[in-house]
Design a protein around this nucleic acid. Structure first.
Lengths: 171, 171
DNA sequence: ACCGGCATGTAACGGGTTACATGATTTT
DNA sequence: AAAATCATGTAACCCGTTACATGCCGGT
């Protein structure tokens, strides 16, 4: 499940530019489960174009590079659906925060608090980010996933708040 | 926070072979937040050895490669603690399941059920895996992290179980 | 005046996974 | 008899991030 499939997925929601797809991946919904950046998105779109899985209409703009709006072709949609019917890789998570907290007893108390505070803040930020969307306009899959993300962030906040004392010994 | 730091962290819990470190990373505690495999662990250990951050005592075995037991040096411990005091990267998650479910309305109902079932199963398996450890023997950081993992897996199971109907329309 | 947003793309670099290579012993 | 476990390591490959390159427009 690489960046190409990611782009095809983004395009099922409507035509978009590479710039817009990057926003979906870095700030929008995909940020929560499949982040991706410029360096991989632009090349992926060009490859998809070569393969005929997307088409591109160019819109001239003054003073800026042409805006290239990509849209899914029938072949592209087929490839996307095919990819979703393949066996899926298990979830992968990489958390430097969890890693550091695992060794909390070796750190200075101030550092532990710092970590807990900024970790909590990151979950709050992400939860906020989801709250901003109006769920009624989305298909059920997307509603399910947004709710899932929110549930996870909530659970993290609740756990950290109620168990941080395990790591913080007061003086 | 690369594989080298990961290995140093593993070695703070006691001397170990590359093989044992891999187990910690693929089946043990680190699997939940920082998986890593042979191909990165062995080279990392060799680099650490060159840099004097670990030492290695070789134990001859018959019929097998020598067992190389690595242990942390003072310098290694210092580098590890230094790494934990650096700014940490935000959590990164990659979930093909979530991605696929996001497009649930485009999939066959059977496939959606399949996905939900195996996703649930994966969380159950992971939660089980944590339950197997006796928390009383661990330092607070590790207890905190185990509890955190369990809380997250629980939250996932609860959410999916109670919201899967959003994606499953009965006939 | 300066910063952030729009808009595209390339190149270098780093990092990790996968597969390959070897082989005995224990469990099923 | 086959498969899993112990035990190490290398090499090729894939992929993605980061930095670089360019440049205008609108807001502060």
């Amino acid at each position: 499940m690489d960046t190409k499939i990611l782009c095809l997925g983004a395009l099922t929601m409507g035509a978009a530019t590479g710039y817009e797809i990057r926003k979906i991946c870095e700030e929008g919904p995909f940020a929560h489960f499949h982040a991706s950046s410029f360096g991989s998105i632009y090349p992926a779109l060009n490859k998809l174009l070569e393969e005929g899985l997307v088409v591109c209409t160019q819109h001239a703009q003054d003073g800026r590079p042409d805006k290239k709006v990509y849209a899914l072709t029938e072949a592209g949609r087929a490839v996307f659906l095919e990819a979703l019917s393949q066996p899926l890789a298990p979830d992968r998570r990489r958390s430097e925060y969890t890693f550091a907290l695992f060794f909390g007893h070796m750190l200075e108390p101030g550092r532990v608090q710092e970590l807990l505070d900024s970790y909590l803040k990151s979950f709050h930020t992400r939860a906020e980010c989801i709250k901003g969307v109006d769920p009624s306009t989305f298909p059920p899959g997307q509603r399910f996933v947004f709710g899932f993300g929110q549930a996870m962030y909530h659970a993290a906040i609740t756990y950290i708040t109620s168990h941080r004392h395990l790591l913080e010994k007061e003086p």
